[in-house]
Design a protein around this nucleic acid. Structure first.
Length: 882
RNA sequence: GCCCCUGUGGCGGAAUUGGUAGACGCGCCAGACUCAAAAUCUGGUGGUGGCAACAUCGUGCUGGUUCGACUCCGGCCAGGGGCACCA
């Protein structure tokens, strides 16, 4: 190809990208060998749910992971970068109901589509390790681990509430309950108690909490969210005596949990959850209370409703006795703001120091006595009316606690109540409570991993024999009727009991899909082993994942469940570590402007033409020319129709342009706004790099094979730019600051282009410059290779290399080029910049000071005054203080 | 309600973590090439004043610490996110 013919040629991504993908594939350069002796690096992006097609969020997520994978590979590490499918879940069953396709067929079709989409992005994935969680070869091992967990006491069955649709006779997920009604039937949803399977994650509450401190490469935000979710609180369990003359069945005791036992002398009432057994007992003899409790339950569980609901209570007539004063009786209420799930489902109310309690007593005129007085306040005048005081202070109105700090008072109360014995137990016990509840994994659905147990009338719950795993999903199921197809399957349920051989029934619940995604990262380390979930040697060598990348929406459940599951796997000897993800990165969303017609219907960006500069932008519908209203920038979603299809972008501009766009400008943790202008900017840069490499290829024909001994000024300028960019990009890519890397790559391209532009004619090209330009172009291509790998291969070939840039080691910085002989320091007078001073790199402070005071702008700014002092910050700045 | 994050030109954002605010990109303006357009290239582009050198203001608002503050501290405002009426 001659230089002239190339000049007008454009880089054709549509032709080049599949070509390079094929070459990578044929040479298997992204296949990871488990026996590679290099140090390992495991980079993983959250695997997708096969919903149908990939979206721009996937493009962003997987591009970031791919940059890391390619960079770490170039750094000489043995990189594991696998991909799989979170393939079980409700949408497959919904599709089955709506479109009469089998969930399996629907899922595998989607996987095929999405796989080819991902492949068109040029991701450096090891597809040989592909996993689909709906594959019996995967869920077999999950069932095995369930049985191991069961044996180790990590699983239990217990009653729990579910949303029950009385018309469809089916259990609904929270998302299927809309305004208290079933999404399909529209029937009012009922709360029902079912016996369900649970993983005992709460056993690990303390460990999961404490270990958050060790996750120093996780975002602080996620760590905080997990801490709050686990919700540890230290308090006191207090057994209040009840006046048994006032209780329905002579009950004589009420357990409460409190973290504010210091305020015990401010108590005004006791309150029970509407779900509390004692409330139920009292209600049995009191129709009005029954009605009140029913009313509370009708309020629903939706957060918003509860938030807005007024604090309400019902006086049961029961009396509790103050633990420090037998003559002090407290009324016992049932109150709508007490949760049965937390603590003991009962509290004592101290209105002066808890806003909820204060709102409550103000409604029922029970009064409020302040028992904590803020420092500096006069206790005599300190009263509480509308706003509770929850700050620090000294105890007042509290008998033997008076004048103590809160901490001292808590200690004193705990000590006294621990010693006070009633029956055989102390009245007070120090207790630590967690908000974290056990993980209910039972789902009454078809498209999930079957729970491998058998129910026998004689033997009870019997685990399936390991040799009988997997318990496979039957394929001949129908979705004509609501409810669980497994439950109504004619034969699947019927088995013989493994213990007594009598007829028995299979468990028809399947597992929560969060179970599937709680160990896939471990399976990737050896997805071929058939005899066990993991190969201990492999899994222990590869885990933890060095860099995990995904959406913030998984900050709590997926990540916390995975942390628990890894601990459970360790307890059952399937892995040798506690924490699955050493580094976590949560990327921002992809957002886009919204467009709607006059009528209010949203229209897609593809249907709209936007014109005009910022401020005077207006849009029209391409088909009809009708004006379109430009709306806000929002997360890409089907409902807002503001999505851009990755396939369209790749077909129009190529994968590299899409990838480059995703990495440019916006910091990866923030939202990125997809705009047509910026996509075109990215596409332009692709062409510019292509032309630039062509020019350098032409110039470098006159380059010597070996590095010249001496370099002229022009060559040194280019070399400094190249090595400077190399140093910066290497540093920023490690911190995942891709947008900053992009900026430095632009700078290098600009610098190299400028240098070439300054050459008058071809005969002016010196051999040292030719060599330097060639070196700079090589570095440039290697720097953008992780981001735009196809273009990089193409440019690499144009530059005359016979190798693949994808397998090149990362270039080495020549440190000497980063050090300047002279440095230019900004000079400030009283903190305002007035001049620059250029001095030799090793100039002493006295020399710099002298040089600075000679500068005209400095003299002018000083107005003849003598400076009080001159601050010289080495290699940084000079400040003259007048 | 509580907690967290963010706030920098027309826009996305950068700033070596206390040391030249606005890198880089987008957009816009002017010019070159062209019959013309696209593409490409060159130059300009925070506000105000000035022909200019330059001056002056400027990182949500407001105080403070400092030789020096986008960066640290106090108070406020706005936007976004999370959540637990959690005793």
């Amino acid at each position: 190809m001659t230089a002239d013919s190339r000049k007008n040629e454009r880089y054709n991504a549509r032709e080049a990208e599949p070509r390079w993908q094929k070459i990578w594939d044929e040479r298997e350069i992204f296949a990871t060998r488990n026996d590679d002796p290099q140090p390992k690096y495991y980079v993983l992006e959250m695997f997708p749910y096969p919903s149908g097609r990939i979206h721009m969020g996937h493009v962003r997520n997987y591009t970031m992971g791919d940059v890391v994978a390619r960079y770490k590979r170039a750094m000489g590490l043995n990189v594991l970068h696998p991909m799989g499918w979170d393939a079980f879940g409700m949408p497959a069953e919904n599709a089955a109901m709506e479109r009469k396709v089998h969930p399996k067929a629907w899922t595998y079709d989607n996987i095929a589509t999405m796989k080819s989409q991902l492949q068109s992005m040029g991701l450096s994935l090891d597809w040989a390790r592909e996993i689909a969680t709906c594959d019996p070869g995967y869920y077999k091992h999950q069932q095995k681990m369930f049985l191991d967990f069961l044996k180790s006491g990590l699983v239990e069955r217990k009653q729990s509430k579910v949303n029950w649709d009385p018309v469809d006779h089916t259990v609904l997920a929270n998302e299927q309950v809309i305004d208290g009604r079933g999404w399909r039937s529209g029937a009012l949803v009922e709360q029902r108690e079912l016996t369900q399977w649970f993983f005992k994650i709460s056993d690990y509450a303390q460990d999961l909490l404490a270990a958050i401190d060790t996750l120093d490469r996780w975002p602080e935000k996620v760590r905080l969210m997990q801490r709050n979710w686990i919700g540890r609180s230290e308090g006191l369990l207090v057994r209040f005596a009840l006046d048994s003359n006032t209780t329905p069945n002579g009950e004589s005791e009420l357990d409460i949990f409190t973290t504010r036992h210091d305020t015990l002398f401010g108590a005004k009432f006791m309150a029970l959850s509407p779900d509390h057994p004692l409330a139920a007992a009292a209600a049995a003899k009191n129709p009005a209370l029954t009605e009140f409790i029913a009313e509370c339950k009708r309020t629903g569980t939706a957060q918003e409703l509860i938030d807005k609901a007024e604090k309400q209570g019902f006086d049961t007539g029961m009396k509790a006795i103050h633990p420090f004063d037998p003559s002090w009786k407290l009324p016992v209420y049932v109150a709508n703001f007490i949760l049965m799930d937390y603590g003991t489902g009962a509290i004592f109310g101290c209105p002066a120091h808890d806003q909820r309690d204060l709102d409550f007593v103000n409604k029922y005129s029970l009064g409020a006595t302040a028992v904590v007085c803020p420092e500096g306040q006069d206790p005599k005048t300190f009263v509480i009316t509308d706003i509770a005081y929850d700050g620090d202070g000294r105890m007042i109105n509290s008998r033997f606690l008076d004048s103590m700090t809160i901490a001292q008072a808590k200690e004193e109360v705990a000590r006294r109540l621990e010693k006070q014995i009633r029956g055989n137990r102390p009245v007070g016990e120090r207790q630590i409570n967690y908000r974290l509840r056990d993980w209910g994994i039972s789902r009454q659905r078809y498209w999930g991993c079957p729970i491998p147990v058998i129910h026998c009338d004689t033997c009870g719950v019997v685990p399936v024999h390991e040799k009988d795993l997997p318990v496979r999903l039957p394929e001949d199921v129908d979705f004509d009727r609501p409810g669980n197809p497994l439950d109504r399957h004619p034969t699947w349920k019927s088995v013989t009991c493994p213990k007594c051989a009598k007829p028995a029934r299979r468990e028809t619940d399947t597992m929560d899909t969060f179970v599937d995604s709680s160990w896939y990262f471990a399976r990737f380390t050896d997805p071929w082993i058939a005899s066990a979930p993991t190969d201990r040697k492999m899994v222990d060598a590869w885990l933890p994942v060095d860099q995990y990348i995904g959406g913030i929406e998984h900050a709590i459940l997926h990540l916390l469940y995975s942390r628990f599951f890894t601990r459970a796997m360790r307890a059952t000897k399937h892995v040798g570590m506690d924490e699955p993800f050493a580094g976590l990165f949560t990327q921002g969303m992809v957002v886009h402007e919204t467009y709607r017609r006059k009528g209010g219907d949203y229209v897609t960006p593809a249907e709209v033409k936007v014109e005009g500069a910022e401020g005077s932008r207006h849009a029209t519908l391409i088909a009809t020319g009708e004006p379109i209203e430009i709306g806000g920038i929002e997360k890409m979603s089907k409902s807002k129709r503001n999505t851009v299809d990755p396939d369209d972008i790749i077909a129009t501009y190529g994968a590299d342009t899409a990838r480059w766009f995703m990495l440019s400008d916006s910091p990866p943790e923030r939202d990125v706004n997809w705009t047509e202008d910026r996509v075109q900017g990215a596409a332009r840069f692709v062409q510019r790099l292509w032309r630039l490499c062509g020019e350098v290829a032409e110039i470098s024909k006159s380059a010597p094979a070996k590095s010249p001994v001496e370099f002229g000024t022009a060559a040194v300028v280019v070399r400094k730019a190249a090595h400077g960019a190399l140093a910066k990009v290497s540093q920023e890519i490690d911190k995942l600051h891709f947008n900053v890397c992009v900026a430095h790559i632009y700078e290098l391209a600009n610098a190299l282009g400028d240098s070439i532009g300054e050459i008058g004619s071809e005969s002016d090209i010196t051999s040292d410059f030719a060599w330097a330009a060639r070196e700079a172009a090589d570095i440039l291509v290697q720097l953008f290779h992780p981001m735009m790998p196809h273009l990089a291969e193409e440019c690499w070939a144009v530059l005359g290399h016979k190798t693949l840039v994808s397998v090149q080691p990362w270039p080495q910085v020549e440190p000497g080029l980063l050090i300047e002989d002279t440095i230019t320091l900004p000079v400030q007078v009283n903190g305002k910049k007035r001049a620059d001073v250029t001095v030799s790199r090793d100039a002493g402070n006295a020399d710099i000071e002298a040089a600075v005071l000679m500068l005209d702008p400095v003299k002018r700014a000083l107005e003849g005054k003598t400076p009080k002092k001159v601050i010289v910050v080495p290699q940084r700045i000079v400040n003259v203080v007048a």
